[in-house]
């Protein structure tokens, strides 16, 4: 009895030492964060504004996103949809998105219908259904309002893919973990705009820092009638659309 207890204690002691060994990687991380210093996630709240009346459907944003983020072929972190609505038939719009609008759209000469383009991306919701269903804490809402994925934690269980009401997530065909728009977190935290906004020729889409009082987003939100996608889902989306038609889903 005594011997086994001693063995147990010995084993526990060994584990303690191993545990202590595992901890040191906390130090460099803390030092790294302190050294960079300049970016404090608590001082920002990121979102985007999209002006439907400025979108020309050129596909620049889709291509830029794919290049910047190595998005695999046939998968999209952002894409463009063309809506075609006949008269007041809001329930049955014709929606097309050939290759996500990556190479633009076949030109239309139809003049009897209402047509427009709707760029879409992750809405970086403040009450994200995707975050709520993740069983392992692999997807989360960062302090600066960006929904991100921890690839090393993701099991690839697809709960979040199912939960997202906007269809913004996919399983990366090589990594087999979930992948999505990061709102170019690696750019916006360095003072750059997102790749899609950089490449947009008409400023139809503009990055917004809702916590920065000098950001033009405040004027935009004050002076325009805006709407988010699927407001009835109560996701508190931070992608605000101007001139959004009721037919858009």
């Amino acid at each position: 009895m005594d011997a086994t207890r001693r063995q147990i204690l010995k084993g526990a002691g060994l584990l303690l030492i191993l545990g202590a060994r595992a901890n040191p990687d906390a130090a460099p991380e803390a030092a790294g964060a302190a050294a960079e210093g300049a970016y404090n996630p608590h001082e920002h709240l990121w979102g985007m504004t999209i002006d439907i009346e400025k979108c020309i459907g050129c596909g620049n944003c889709v291509r830029a996103c794919a290049q910047e983020n190595d998005v695999p072929e046939e998968y999209f972190r952002t894409w463009i949809e063309r809506y075609e609505i006949e008269g007041g038939d809001l329930e049955h719009p014709k929606v097309s998105s050939p290759d996500g609008g990556k190479h633009g759209f076949p030109p239309s000469s139809e003049t009897t219908t209402k047509q427009f383009f709707v760029p879409k991306l992750c809405n970086h919701c403040q009450e994200s259904p995707c975050v709520q269903v993740c069983p392992v804490g692999a997807t989360f809402d960062s302090p600066d309002g960006v929904v991100l994925v921890d690839e090393s934690y993701c099991l690839g269980c697809r709960y979040c893919v199912q939960a997202c009401p906007y269809g913004c997530r996919y399983i990366h065909p090589k990594k087999m973990t979930v992948d999505k728009c990061t709102l170019c977190y690696h750019r916006i935290t360095k003072g750059l705009t997102t790749a899609c906004c950089e490449a947009c020729p008409t400023q139809a889409r503009v990055l917004a820092d809702l916590k920065n009082p000098a950001d033009p987003v405040h004027v935009f939100l004050r002076e325009n009638k805006v709407q988010v996608l699927k407001p009835h889902m109560a996701t508190r989306s931070k992608v605000y659309y101007r001139a959004l038609d009721g037919a858009v889903r």
Binding site: A33, Q67, T182, A195
Partner: peptide
Amino acid sequence: YGHYRGAVLDEVRARPVKY
């Protein structure tokens, strides 16, 4: 920061900029 690995923020930030 919450129920996730805080170090992910720096990992995502470290990705290369192309534009």
